[in-house]
Simulated scan of single mutants.
Amino acid sequence: MQNYIRKRAVKVAAHIIQTSDTVRQTAEVFGISKSTVHKDVSERLPKINGQMAEQVKNILEKNKAERHLRGGEATRKKYSQVVELV
Results as ranks from 00 to 15, higher is better:
86 V>E: 10
81 Q>L: 12
86 V>D: 02
38 H>V: 08
40 D>L: 04
31 G>E: 07
69 L>Q: 07
43 E>Q: 13
24 R>K: 12
79 Y>P: 00
60 L>A: 04
15 H>A: 08
10 V>F: 09
28 E>M: 04
24 R>D: 04
51 Q>K: 11
11 K>T: 05
34 K>T: 04
53 A>C: 10
82 V>Y: 05
21 D>W: 10
7 K>I: 14
49 N>C: 02
82 V>M: 14
83 V>K: 14
26 T>Q: 01
7 K>V: 15
25 Q>A: 11
14 A>M: 08
86 V>Y: 08
73 E>L: 14
85 L>G: 03
31 G>F: 03
60 L>K: 12
41 V>E: 03
79 Y>M: 01
84 E>P: 00
16 I>R: 02
9 A>Y: 13
25 Q>K: 15
49 N>F: 03
61 E>I: 14
61 E>A: 03
77 K>G: 04
84 E>T: 03
35 S>F: 00
36 T>F: 05
66 E>V: 01
9 A>L: 00
59 I>M: 03
36 T>Q: 14
48 I>D: 11
21 D>M: 04
42 S>H: 07
65 A>K: 15
57 K>G: 05
22 T>R: 09
86 V>S: 09
65 A>N: 15
43 E>K: 10
4 Y>H: 15
74 A>S: 09
41 V>T: 13
44 R>Y: 05
36 T>W: 05
14 A>D: 14
67 R>K: 15
84 E>V: 08
22 T>Y: 00
38 H>R: 10
68 H>T: 03
48 I>T: 06
6 R>P: 05
16 I>H: 02
39 K>Y: 07
69 L>V: 10
66 E>W: 08
61 E>T: 13
76 R>W: 09
41 V>R: 07
11 K>V: 06
78 K>E: 02
69 L>S: 11
29 V>H: 01
20 S>E: 15
42 S>L: 11
44 R>C: 01
36 T>V: 14
53 A>M: 06
70 R>V: 13
24 R>N: 06
50 G>P: 02
29 V>R: 00
67 R>V: 11
10 V>G: 06
64 K>I: 10
